[in-house]
Write a protein that binds this DNA or RNA. Structure first.
Lengths: 230, 230
DNA sequence: GCAGATATTTTGATTACTCAAAATAGTATC
DNA sequence: GATACTATTTTGAGTAATCAAAATATCTGC
């Protein structure tokens, strides 16, 4: 049984690997996201390699093996189902469930997990719009434009918000930009590095390009299926 | 912040202390309930004493301090609220929630805990009939007779089942003897060490005196209040 | 192709928890 | 009151995860 530390390393490695699928993850990067000193990352990665969970190339970096990826996806499935459960069933705010799920993801039994999945009707995405891996360990990451590179003036919908920071999510809330919200992108100012959007029935909201890049969108009409086939 | 190991020691000490409130807990006993060797219990207890959570008298035993008891009660509150939540809201069976709660009790945030408490309407007892300590750290343990020493032939109700073993709880289920169930005690045979009871609308069920002692009862008419005042 | 900057690995220690087994204290027996 | 039995404590060691800091490798610029 993988320790919670191991589960966290694998999860973080998976998330990093998503960002740059082609190359392996540097020790320095891993150390930063895990909040440890580089030496710790090195020795931990060696242990993971001994367990067959990662491929480790000294001075180059680390990549998940298939086994490591399966485990990582299972942790992420637990995390995201728990997040949705906390919002839908328990009634917590989507801005606060991430930290809670960070703990719960390590202790939920398979029995409870599948019960939650069933209760929620086998959902496809969590409250942030992040896809929920299946029990079998597959995820479908949809390619979606963000506020930065979508069409201007079109009817869009927030599909996913790729930042888990409490403060950022509260900002999104206040601007009416949570997943499912209708909006249009009004203007982009390349030199000032700004994007202005307006959510349905709201004041226009301006933000930096880097903030804008965290909102992924889909066309407003085409509401994506929210449930997995039973 | 107390580690999960410390929380477990305190919880177990509390439960033992409740059994024999007058005397202190022997190291051997603590070692058994914690599933460790006696030496481990000794060194752990010394650490707890250094933190002011227990009074430790070498070669005699250990008792919780007020601080230790408060912490223990908080853990037990989390455990029992989680159990009830898993039964009522998630729909798990009462025979399986104990093991699940054993993990969850250490990672639930105060925020989530109070939300669950609210959602359940500030309940007084968990699915086994065990009382739920208040947020302030007080519990009311009611003195109740068991199948072994209650009146024969009277209309009774199962109020509490003091065994968390999955198998035992399933047996209770099958005999219709879960908390809330109406029943009467038909007969006791001192020599054969047996007790026979009949739950409402069921076949009579015979069990040993030691099994019978695990069912605590209250008069059937007087249904105890189930909710705490808001 | 060498010097310096930067990233990585190694080494040695630390903390929390655990066990095995030896030492010790307390209790009971005769 | 010496002997034996039992419970407890001590000692020494191990594991998982971590840090600080020294050693080493790799890249970059000239």
């Amino acid at each position: 049984m993988a320790s919670r530390t191991i589960e966290n390393y694998l999860k973080q490695l998976y998330l990093e690997q998503r960002e740059t699928p082609e190359d392996s993850i540097a020790m320095g990067r891993l150390a930063v996201v895990m909040g440890v000193v580089p030496g710790t990352a090195t020795s931990m990665v060696k242990a993971l390699a001994d367990s067959g969970l990662v491929h480790y190339e000294p001075r180059t970096g680390v990549r998940l093996t298939t086994a490591g990826q399966q485990l990582a996806l299972h942790v992420i499935r637990r995390h995201r189902l728990v997040e949705l459960f906390l919002v839908k069933t328990v009634g917590l705010d989507w801005s606060e469930v991430h930290v809670e799920a960070e703990e719960l993801e390590h202790v939920i039994s398979d029995r409870l997990l599948e019960r939650i999945d069933e209760l929620l009707g086998h959902p496809l995405v969590d409250p942030h719009g992040d896809p929920i891996p299946s029990a079998g360990g597959t995820v479908r990451e949809l390619e979606m434009p963000s506020f930065v590179n979508c069409a201007l003036g079109q009817a869009l919908m927030v599909a996913r918000v790729v930042d888990q920071e409490r403060g950022f999510l509260q900002f999104a809330n206040q601007s009416g930009l949570m997943p499912g919200a209708k909006l249009e992108v009004l203007e982009r100012n390349v030199n000032a590095d700004l994007v202005t959007v307006r959510a349905a029935g709201r004041e226009a909201q301006t933000m930096s390009t880097s903030a804008a890049a965290k909102f992924l969108v889909s066309p407003a009409g085409k509401s994506r299926a929210k449930k997995r086939k039973g």
